[in-house]
Amino acid sequence: MVNRLRSFILVWIYENIFKMSVTPSASAVSYVIKPVLFIICLVPLVWLVWGAINDTLGANPVEVMTRETGEWVLRFLLITLSITPARKILNLPWLIKLRRMLGLFVFFYAVMHFITYIWFDQYFNWSEIVKDVVKRPFITIGFAAFVLLIPLALTSNKIMIRRLKKNWLVLHKLIYVIAVLGVLHFTWLVKADYLQPVVYFLILLLLLVYRTYIQRNTRSIN
């Protein structure tokens, strides 16, 4: 009796939650979900700008701006990389329609992070900036990750996808390299408390392991 009840519950959870296939219509995605998500993605920036204007970012606003924009790059990166697993595990294939926008927000916050550094941190002191990029490994890899994001952002439109064909997929595999560089960049600037970078690292690792697992499985089926 208990066993039957348990299997019933498990089947119900599987059928109704994991296999749930809520597919909003194409127009609902284009005209409701995407615009709402777009505005949500801008909230961290609005919060920072508001805080900077009203002086509510604490004693060292530049540090907060640098840190927040940088952490949002990592957060959006991990969210973007979660789309594929989320689609498969939750059986929500339409989520793919949100991935490009989320990916572009990775680039957007990377640009904000870069501008904060160039403008408010270094105040356009180019010789210092060049010295930083060349001499300081954590800045070198952060900068490398930023540069690698540029071709991805430039090719994330339908025309380029069509033109690049298979190469597009290869090119966009760079996102994994960028993610690893990004987390390293964050880890390397920490003085003693590695808790936060470790959390980012573990989430990234989980996402990468899931992908290799999926790939291996599909290969063995073929």
């Binding site: 970012l57 004693a59 060292n60 941190d121 300081r136 490994p137 390397w188």
Partner: peptide, 22 residues
């Protein structure tokens, strides 16, 4: 003498407006 991970040639004076150079 720089810290291995960052420069020590300038500093941000806390309380100064953030848009000013260090």
């Amino acid at each position: 003498v720089d810290h291995p991970r960052w420069s020590q040639s300038t500093e941000r004076r806390i309380g100064e407006p953030f848009w000013k150079p260090k």
